[in-house]
């Protein structure tokens, strides 16, 4: 069962990478209001039910995958 986790810097925090990419895009005349840069993690789990998988993923997130102080996450089911 494949899952995707999107991790983004919290809104309150200066996203220095996002700011740089945004600047570059704007300099090159792309139309956009903001740009933010995060990371994406793919997990392939043995779990058979979605519920159990989510519990497992939550545990992994809390263990190491994200830092609640500076990041937020969303998870999504892949290859449905």
């Amino acid at each position: 069962m494949k899952w995707g986790i999107r991790i983004m810097p919290r809104e309150v925090l200066l996203d220095s990478q996002g700011r740089a990419v945004e600047g570059l895009l704007k300099q090159n005349h792309f139309q956009l209001s903001t740009c933010r840069v995060g990371r994406y993690i793919e997990l392939d789990l043995q779990e058979t039910t979605e519920e159990n998988a989510k519990i497992e993923i939550k545990k992994m997130l809390d263990f190491a995958l994200y830092n609640p102080l500076i990041e937020t996450y969303t998870i999504e089911r892949l290859n449905l």
């Binding site: 810097p9 200066l14 830092n67 500076i70």
Partner: peptide
């Protein structure tokens, strides 16, 4: 900081 033994976080330098 990551282990929570100190408060706060260290993030990418402003100048990248």
């Amino acid at each position: 900081c990551e282990s929570g033994l100190l408060p706060g976080a260290l993030t990418r330098n402003e100048g990248l």
